[in-house]
Design a protein around this nucleic acid. Structure first.
Lengths: 155, 155
DNA sequence: ACGATTCTTGACTAAACAGTATACTTAAAC
DNA sequence: GTTTAAGTATACTGTTTAGTCAAGAATCGT
């Protein structure tokens, strides 16, 4: 079970933008510098994020990228969904069919129920976490329902 | 966020073995037939599972594979851990460092806390689900703590 | 208008994962 | 002891993901 590089680095860039939301567009070169990535790679990530409606671009001098919505109104789930996809999604069973045209467990699949539970469990966490929560700026914008992320400890 | 093929198909094979636990070793050819995979690929999966202590092999005529422990004592978490690894693990931050030798967020990482929460949430589900739960044979062996998996519905 | 700055696109290379092929080893059955 | 049905090991090929490169298009400042 793994995150893709695109998810990890894409989210990091989005977080940098959330941290500076309202301070004008951020340039590819600045994001690359802050995250220690190459500008070319950041450009590629931004393309994905732009097409997914997470960021909007401003061209020309003093251009760059900014978030499409305020950080408090954008969840980590929204961002990750654009950068890759769900762990278990409807098309999943059409992808893992071995050498048959369709999965041999169509009628009775014991794994499917488990994957669905996992999926629900994941999204329960990711939907609630806003970008504002993660960068600790939630107070500046809209107050979120429930406890803020950084107040919850894992172990 | 995704499962690797190895996790999906490896777990399926393990489940087939759990379903027939106690009926003698299962042959690669039979597993391949049941799961609609090539024998060569099943052999590769079995190597990983054997080295990870999930299955044991019996060589020679009338040989095959059987589970290293009874299905009620083996969790899905145990199996997935061998087939790939955790979503977020200690080495994670050493892997995503961009073009620097180490991650630029060492001292203050807002994503790390979220990944840890996710990880805990996932493992909460996976640790509790035994192979016996999944194949509906839990009554034949040892009664598990908590509600059996198939009694819980997601949506 | 012009040029500097910045994003945009598509094609390309490299690395990782998925799956295959083949030759070899072990041990039961007779 | 020979045969035969199994697993074991390594190397190979194909496909997807990661990351790079270079030429182009839009916008701002002067």
């Amino acid at each position: 079970m793994r995150f893709t590089s695109q998810e990890e680095y894409g989210l990091r860039c989005v977080l940098q933008m959330a941290k500076r939301d309202g301070e004008g567009p951020m340039k590819i070169a600045d994001l690359a510098e802050l995250e220690s990535l190459t500008p070319a790679y950041v450009a590629k990530l931004m393309r994905v994020l732009r097409k997914g409606g997470i960021v909007v671009s401003v061209r020309g001098q003093s251009g760059g990228y900014r978030l499409a919505r305020p950080p408090a109104l954008m969840s980590v789930a929204d961002v990750l969904m654009v950068l890759d996809h769900r762990l278990y999604e409807p098309a999943y069973c059409q992808e893992y069919t071995g050498i048959s045209p369709s999965c041999v467990h169509m009628s009775d699949c014991s794994i499917r129920a488990l994957w669905r539970r996992l999926e629900a469990s994941l999204w329960h966490v990711l939907d609630k976490a806003t970008l504002a929560d993660l960068v600790g700026r939630e107070r500046e914008t809209i107050v979120q329902l429930g406890a803020p992320l950084h107040a919850a400890r894992v172990s």
